[in-house]
Design a protein around this nucleic acid. Sequence first.
DNA 1: TGGGTCATGTAACCTGTTACATGATTAG
DNA 2: CTAATCATGTAACAGGTTACATGACCCA
Lengths: 182, 182
Amino acid sequence: MLKHGILGLLSYGEMSGYEINTAFRDSLSFFWSAQTSQIYREIDTLEKNGWIEKRAVEQDGRPNKNICAITEAGRAELRRWLAEDNAGATRDRRDPVMMKTFFMGELPASEGLEFFKSLQRECQEYAGGLQETGAIIEAYQKMIPDGKKAVFWQMAAEFGKRYMEMYLGWTEYCIKIMEEAQ
Amino acid sequence: MLKHGILGLLSYGEMSGYEINTAFRDSLSFFWSAQTSQIYREIDTLEKNGWIEKRAVEQDGRPNKNICAITEAGRAELRRWLAEDNAGATRDRRDPVMMKTFFMGELPASEGLEFFKSLQRECQEYAGGLQETGAIIEAYQKMIPDGKKAVFWQMAAEFGKRYMEMYLGWTEYCIKIMEEAQ
DNA sequence: TGGGTCATGTAACCTGTTACATGATTAG
DNA sequence: CTAATCATGTAACAGGTTACATGACCCA
C-alpha cells in the first residue's frame, strides 16, 4: 500500500525522496502512518520493479537529490491497484484502542475512566488540527492544477472529520457509562 | 498488540490454540484481523516470554490439544499494556480505502462512482452482521460471569456500530458528489 | 462420498518499527 | 551558538501475509 501511496504522489509530478516524505506527512499521514526509513526502502523497491526512475541532481550548498519520476509501468500499476476489487476492505482493520477497550475490565474503574478521558482530549486536539487540512488541500490545489483531483482529497478530509466527530461522541458515551457506574 | 489480545482472552480462562483462534474471530476480529498461522506463532512467543504456560491434553477420536494458561507475569504484562500511555493512538492508522480515495482521480469518474457504491454495499451488509455481535456478547457474558467486563465489550461493539453508520453516511456523501458532477 | 469441524503447525516472504549515522546551510 | 531544514540512508528486529501440509471424525 505504501508503494501505491508513493506512486500516487509521483503521478502528480517528479519528487525527491525528501519531498515524497514531506508530502506524505502533510497529506497521507492522516490515514497512513509511515517512517522515513521505510519510504526510502520502498523507493528502492519501486525502482527495482521498474515503476519509477531515479536521477541524481547535484546541488551546491545542499546535499544531492535523487529525483524520482513515475514510469508508464508505474502508472499502469497505480491504476491496476485503484481498480482492483477491495471486498472486505471495511472489515480489515487493526485498532489498538478498541483492543484495549475490550480488555479494560482488567484495570480498576478509575484507570478506565482516565483512559477514555485521555482519548477524548486527543480527539478534541485533533479536531482543531483538521482546520489545517483544509489549508493543505488548498495548497495542493494550487500546485496541481487538475481541479478534478481536489474533489477526492476533499472526500478523504471529510472522512477524517466525520471519523473524529464519531470518535469524540463515542468517548463521551463511554465516559458517561463509567461515571454512572460509580 | 496481537500478543496482548491473546493474553486478554487467556485472562478469562484456559484455552487451546484452536479456541483462541475462534474466540478471536468471534470477537476481536471486528477491530483486529489476524491469521491462524500468526496466532500459533504468537502463542510460541508468549510462552518464550514466560507470559503463558502450555500443557498437552491427549484426546481420543480428536487431535491432541495444547491448553494455554496465563501466568502471573502474563497478567502483569497485560495490565502494563492497558495502563501504558497511548498518546497519538487516534492518529496512528493505516486505511487502504482512504489511500485509494485520495488518488481516485486517476481513474475515470464512472469507476470512481462504482468504487464508492461497492463500499456502500459492504457497509450495508456489515450493518446487518452487527446484530450478531450483540448475540456474541451475550454468549460471552454467560461464559464469563464477571458482569463488569461485559460493559467494555459493549463499548467496543458500540464503536463498531457508530463507525459503520459514519462510514455509510460518508459513502452516501461521496456518491452524491460523483453523481452531481456528471 | 463430500464437506465441515477439530486440531496442529512450518516456511518463505513482505511490511513496519527502532535505532543509528552523517553533515552542510540558514534563520533567529 | 543553537535549532531547524535539507538530504541521504543502513541494520536489526518485529509483526503480518500467503501458501502449504496433515488427518480423523461426524453429519447429510
